[in-house]
């Protein structure tokens, strides 16, 4: 049994990558399955997808907790998600990064294939969707599939869904990534912190759902309610606020979907960057040009 876990962000195509990988394994004469993590996370959020390959029929249906191979489609995930959790010491990792394998630190020292997939994707499919490029790197490090079977599988899957031209460009992306992939050993210095998940049984839940009125989150169930879910990790661009220019119209406060723009006593505003997803609405509607979006997830 060979198990692969794909880590990406919503919209990068992690699910398609898992399915294409499984199909390529089937073409090589193996049994395979692929499925996404079923959750409520949307575009930009960290997402997972899984694939299993075996020589006989696969009856297990669970998620993958101890993968043989990790595919990391976005380097920034390493800081926000325990991606290497459960990776076998004999395993391997494929990563989309500008770094060389020996400079990558995922927390486990294993065989590592790196490729800078974003320029390849921009060059071929004209969008930063790296799922097919990363599959080229997978073919380089994984013995179960070859670049030929990956390309056939991409042609099948993408050709059916998006048309011939898209399929050709996507398989070209895989081929280019295959040629540019560097294999080495990565570092294992990072500590992997598993998040504490509070999952009470129905007996442990507060009765009714009502807590006292003075509780921070009113009747929000659980410690802090959804306030404990810091969605700021989804952000790739960050709003920058110029208080001098602000005319205190409060439109941004009204229009922020996250509610992360806080209104101060004097009707100036302040951002709570822990929750900002970087949608850019505030900069778009500001009548005084006081908000600009800057690249990167850092706090300005």
């Amino acid at each position: 049994m060979f198990e692969v876990r794909f880590h990406g962000r919503g919209g990068q195509g992690a699910v398609m990558a898992a399915q294409t990988f499984a199909e390529a394994a089937v073409l090589e004469g193996h049994h395979a399955q692929a499925f996404p993590y079923f959750g409520a996370e949307r575009r930009g959020a960290p997402v997972r997808a899984f694939a299993r390959v075996d020589d006989k029929r696969i009856t297990i249906k669970s998620q993958i907790y101890e993968p043989d191979m990790l595919v990391i489609m976005d380097e920034s995930l390493l800081d926000i998600d325990p991606v290497a959790d459960g990776l076998k010491p004999t395993g391997s990792v494929v990563m989309n990064t500008t770094k060389a394998p020996q400079d990558v630190d995922i927390g486990v020292a294993v065989r590592c294939a790196t490729v800078d997939a974003i320029p390849i994707a921009l060059e071929t499919i004209k969008a930063p969707i790296v799922n097919t490029a990363i599959l080229g790197a997978v073919a380089k490090i994984c013995d179960l599939v070859t670049i030929e079977s990956i390309k056939t599988s991409i042609n099948d899957r993408f050709g059916e869904k998006l048309g011939e031209q898209a399929a050709r460009m996507n398989s070209l992306a895989a081929e280019m990534a295959y040629a540019r992939t560097v294999v080495g050993i990565c570092k294992g210095e990072r500590t992997i912190v598993r998040p504490k998940v509070w999952l009470p049984t129905w007996k442990e839940l507060p009765q009714g759902t009502a807590l006292g009125e003075d509780t921070l989150s009113g009747v929000t169930v659980g410690p802090g309610g959804s306030l404990g879910n810091y969605t700021g990790t989804w952000r790739t661009i960050t709003p920058k606020y110029d208080q001098e220019k602000c005319v205190r119209c409060l439109r941004c406060w009204f229009c922020c979907p996250e509610g992360c723009i806080k209104r101060l006593e004097d009707d100036h505003v302040k951002w709570d960057y822990r929750y900002c997803k970087g949608c850019g609405i505030c900069a778009n509607i500001c009548p005084a040009d006081a908000i600009h979006m800057v690249k990167g997830a850092m706090e300005p």
Binding site: G10, A40, E41, R42, R43, G44, A45, S217, G218, T220, G225, S226, L227, G228, N229, Y230, T231, W234, R235, C249, L250, R251, W253, F254, C255, C256, P257, E258, G259, C260, R263, D267, D272, R274, Y275, K277, G278, C279, G280, I281
Partner: peptide, 25 residues
């Protein structure tokens, strides 16, 4: 007007909507 809206959030941050969701606004 906007300024009259009470400055209290009863629908708090941390929900999982897509960036730029119109519904949450």
């Amino acid at each position: 007007i906007i300024r009259d809206i009470p400055n209290n959030d009863w629908f708090v941050s941390g929900h999982g909507a897509c960036p730029g969701c119109g519904m949450t606004i």
